[in-house]
Write a protein that binds this DNA or RNA. Structure first.
Lengths: 334, 334
DNA sequence: TTGTATGCGTTATCAT
DNA sequence: ATGATAACGCATACAA
């Protein structure tokens, strides 16, 4: 049924070696026979079997995108926006993207020689063991904050500085009691956000803040309505909230609304990453902008460089963040 | 470097056939040798090469997800939500997801025997020719409205009825001049939405509506600010807008805000599909709900049935839509 | 129960 | 310039 290189060879009255040569554009075949072979390939609608080729060339042409299971949701705009950037980066190449969604399948995917390299969204500490990843022997690029001394190159936002900026923005607008809504600290990203928050409060002489961080149990704030409400209610003087992501901020806005708090009148809110919908919300979400598609694109470039043996210069690529003032923040008197 | 079935065989002092048997759980190997082989596999950390296996079994273990290039954006919540459902469906199986993003690569992916089946998001008429798709000879399931007599099973929302419901909802709230914001009519989805809109207006004796549909040039409303503004300005009596998707509706809300129109006071807006963020917006978006993850999951199930030779009963699976009243719609006097 | 041999579709080496 | 042939890692029909 499926037409192979043999069929072409037979039809053209040549050996499979010659056919293979014209396919891969290698020299050593007369222009007359070449033309004949091409014609036959066309007629027979021949397509190379990439699996077979991969078998001999020891490469698959596939790149795995691994997103931590659980925080996953393409609906989390952080992922979808970065992946859009990956898509752009990969367009230039011949690689395809392979994804698995359960962690059992992800393991299989990586172990069974189905991919040439990995783009790894910073896993939580309990997810993949570093040793296990190294053992894979696959070129890997990490997106997002990750263990500082990991052997993999890493592309990420300057989370710490970003959150720092957000706190400062609120301070400049008169806020003195500022909280942080954070994801579980098992993620390195959360740790970095905490550091930025803490560092800003220190500099502004606003205290350590240990008491004003809400650490969610889940990565999805929508699963935590009650604890969020309790957090707000027990801190009546708190006028400003910084969130570790826009996704979180959107959830916070929703919960605040159900509590009768209006934004920004009663509460100023700042997100992080500035995902596309942030500016589409009403009120538009103030956030700390970073070039998320750029991160995806750069990570892809680095991985492809790794894959093609090019020298990879920068081991850590940190994208700057800059505060964007929109409608969820306003001045307050203290 | 990479340990193959041969290495295991040699180490265990058996033939590769025996090793292959225990790998695939086939009978015909003594429990003693089996144990020995398993031990060696463990020690050597043997992993089967899926590519090689695929070569002999004539299958890859991969399923392609094809999203029309251009409307694409994982950021379009329609796609990301459906894909979440696909992820759930595929978790039960052993298949991986492969995606390409440029249409040249998508063609290659499908032609070069890299996948066993296709989940195809309803392509626009100019995208893939039906004949070409059939020629591939790959099991295919289409998600979303598509050519009515396509040979592929299809899972989709009841677009026509959904838009009809939206128009009726506005009518019941007193609206008499109701517009439709639609995507390019080159997509079957847009045609279905138009049909629902037209049908509702007919039933309600509100005229054909031909003049009150805005057909965007792009799939992304954010590229069309000016034409949207012109559309609104030239129809001062229009109090209600139905959108072909929530994504569109969100864009419309943003543009309306910049025009000084407040929602729902000046304009009622209804989206379609009820993506997760719809309810998180402020004001929360009224929409026509449909089980998007369910659609993805069912499509996956159908494809896997197709792949495993099971009988596929329903050729067309249409998911019902039901209007959800939230905060972007209100009563009006006429 | 176990082993041998062939083939899956390619690429690559070595002759011719 | 062209062709035989081995090899990639695995499954399987057939022999033993």
């Amino acid at each position: 049924m499926t037409v192979s290189i043999k069929d072409v060879a037979r039809q053209a009255g040549v050996s499979i070696a010659s056919v293979s040569r014209v396919i891969s554009g290698k020299p050593g075949v007369g222009s007359a026979t070449e033309a004949r072979i091409r014609k036959i390939m066309e007629d027979l609608n021949y397509r190379p079997n990439l699996g077979a080729r991969g078998l001999v060339k020891q490469q698959t042409g596939n790149i795995a995108i691994i997103v931590p299971r659980g925080s996953f949701t393409l609906n989390n705009p952080f992922f979808s926006t970065v992946i859009d950037g990956i898509a752009k980066g990969i367009d230039q190449s011949d690689y395809n993207i392979v994804m698995s969604f359960s962690s059992a399948q992800q393991k299989k995917l990586l172990e069974n020689k189905s991919v040439d390299g990995i783009i790894l969204f910073s896993p939580r500490s309990e997810e993949f063991r570093l040793e296990w990843l190294e053992n894979l022997g696959l070129p890997t690029v990490v997106i997002g904050s990750y263990i500082d001394d990991s052997p993999f190159p890493c592309v990420r936002p300057s989370d710490t500085d970003g959150i720092d900026q957000a706190v400062h923005a609120l301070y400049e607008r008169g806020h003195r009691h500022i909280g942080l809504v954070n994801e579980p600290m098992s993620s390195m990203h959360s740790v970095k956000c905490w550091e930025g928050y803490h560092q800003a409060l220190q500099r502004l002489h606003l205290g350590p803040g240990s008491n004003d961080m809400l650490e969610l149990n889940e990565f999805d704030v929508n699963a935590s309505d009650r604890s969020v409400a309790a957090f707000f209610r027990s801190r009546p003087t708190m006028t400003g909230i910084v969130c570790a992501s826009d996704y979180l901020a959107i959830g916070i806005m929703r919960i605040a609304a159900t509590m009768g708090l209006s934004i920004p009148e009663d509460l100023s809110v700042i997100g992080a990453d500035d995902v596309p919908i942030a500016s589409l919300l009403t009120p538009a979400l103030s956030s700390v902008q970073v070039d998320l598609p750029g991160i995806g694109q750069e990570a892809t470039r680095m991985l492809i460089d790794l894959l093609t043996g090019k020298h990879v210069d920068s081991k850590n690529l940190v994208f700057p963040m800059t505060y964007i003032d929109r409608e969820t923040t306003r001045n307050t008197e203290h």
